[in-house]
């Protein structure tokens, strides 16, 4: 798994990286959830929507399931 943190920093600024460090556990858990959902480009989803992954699994799963329902597995 290759997450382009430089790209995330470029798009959102340095503060988002610090915020991600604070919520590292949630990020890992939510990435695992996407893998279980067979979303193959989970790393790209994180790069595009890093803020979603910082949320608790309770919130993340609700939001991501809505996105999957709308777009299918090609998020």
């Amino acid at each position: 798994m290759k997450i382009d943190l430089e790209k995330i920093q470029e798009l959102y600024g340095e503060s988002i990286i610090n915020e991600m460090k604070n919520h590292f556990d949630n990020i890992i858990e939510n990435l695992s959830y996407l893998k279980k959902k067979q979303i193959s480009n989970y790393d790209e989803v994180l790069e595009s929507y890093p803020y979603l992954f910082m949320l608790s699994s309770y919130s993340f799963q609700k939001k991501i399931n809505q996105i999957i329902k709308k777009n299918g597995k090609s998020i």
Partner: peptide, 9 residues
């Protein structure tokens, strides 16, 4: 409030 684990921050 829903069970957000982040509340414990």
């Amino acid at each position: 409030l829903p069970p957000y684990n982040t509340l414990f921050q």
